[in-house]
């Protein structure tokens, strides 16, 4: 029907723009002050985490508190791979190694997502939240006792591969992936399951398949974010992946407006910047941060951005 080249239409063009922009800005990252650069990369990682959790908690309506767990699986896997392999490779091949390590981390996290997703599908709401919370803690405890990844003292000396370009390029991929998935006839199924599971199954939608898909996809990108985080901080400690981290991400999704990708991205930016901006208030900063979240939630309980899910024509 349409004769325009399949590669350059609509959403895909935006993906390309995003990646190119990230790469170009990355070339000038030497100009940024190191602290600022660090915060910007944090923002990108949090965008990936929030957008991927939004697929599970927002679009599909499942309450997962295990995102830090998936992030840990991906982070530790990617870090271990680069620690082992990087001394054997010439510098030219390092980016390839990084990509491979990230994907491996993502895949292992996706496998974990499948593992959590399948048995917890009989559970809903609070019960599912508790199971995923438990899963996150299990991962943390396992890591804490695994000598191979530094156990409680942490994994040190991870090569600094994460750049602004990698982070925002992958953030663009994540946003593209999640929005494309949802904005299609196939993808309406995620929201249908979220709105009314009984009605969805009576309309030929297989709720189990959609939920597992959401869990696996969400976990995959959380794993990627974990890998970026590991090669950004160059140090991983199990305490960084406790359930408070999961809650941080959940707050971004809720504040952004469940199922609203644009809102979730803005919330991720806002909530990463906020503690940094408040740094000057030293010990009061977490109190102010929490207060601001409470105020925001009271002012806009439905989230920051809540325009209609308009037509959604691909």
């Amino acid at each position: 029907m349409s004769s325009s080249p399949a590669f350059l239409n609509g959403a895909k063009r935006w993906l390309l723009v995003g990646i190119v922009l990230a790469a170009v800005v990355s070339m000038f990252s030497g100009q940024f002050n190191r602290y600022h650069l660090g915060v910007i990369v944090d923002i990108g990682i949090n965008i990936i985490l929030a957008v991927s959790l939004n697929l599970i908690n927002g679009h599909t309506g499942q309450f997962s508190l295990g995102h830090a767990g998936f992030m840990a699986v991906g982070g530790y896997t990617a870090a271990k791979i680069s620690l082992v392999v990087s001394p054997m490779l010439p510098p030219a091949l390092q980016p390839l190694l990084f990509l491979g390590a990230l994907i491996a981390g993502g895949l292992l996290a996706a496998l974990a997502g499948f593992g959590v997703g399948v048995p917890s599908l009989r559970l809903k709401g609070d019960y599912l939240a508790i199971v995923t919370l438990g899963f996150g803690e299990i991962i943390r405890v396992i890591v804490q006792n695994m000598e191979a990844v530094g156990a409680a003292s942490g994994l040190k000396g991870i090569p600094k591969y994460t750049t602004l370009g990698w982070t925002f390029g992958l953030a663009a991929v994540t946003i593209y992936f999640v929005t494309s998935l949802v904005n299609s006839t196939y993808g309406r199924g995620f929201i249908a399951v979220s709105d009314d599971e009984v009605a969805a199954s009576s309309m030929g939608i297989n709720p189990v398949r959609y939920k597992v898909t959401a869990f696996v996809t969400g976990a995959f990108f959380a794993g990627i974010a974990g890998g970026l985080y590991a090669h950004h901080k160059q140090f991983l400690s199990p305490t960084g992946f406790d359930f408070l981290k999961s809650i941080d991400i959940v707050v971004m999704v809720i504040l952004g407006g469940m199922g609203r990708t644009a809102g979730v991205v803005v919330a991720a930016i806002l909530l990463t910047l906020l503690p940094e901006v408040l740094r000057q208030f030293s010990e009061y900063r977490m109190i102010i941060y929490s207060l601001l979240i409470i105020i925001l939630m009271m002012a806009r309980p439905q989230g920051l951005f809540t325009w209609n899910r308009k037509k959604g024509a691909a």
Binding site: R188, I191, D195, D196, A200, N308, R309
Partner: peptide, 10 residues
């Protein structure tokens, strides 16, 4: 039991 948050066509 409609899908309340989806548009009519969706």
């Amino acid at each position: 039991r409609l899908f309340g948050s989806l548009s009519v066509i969706d």
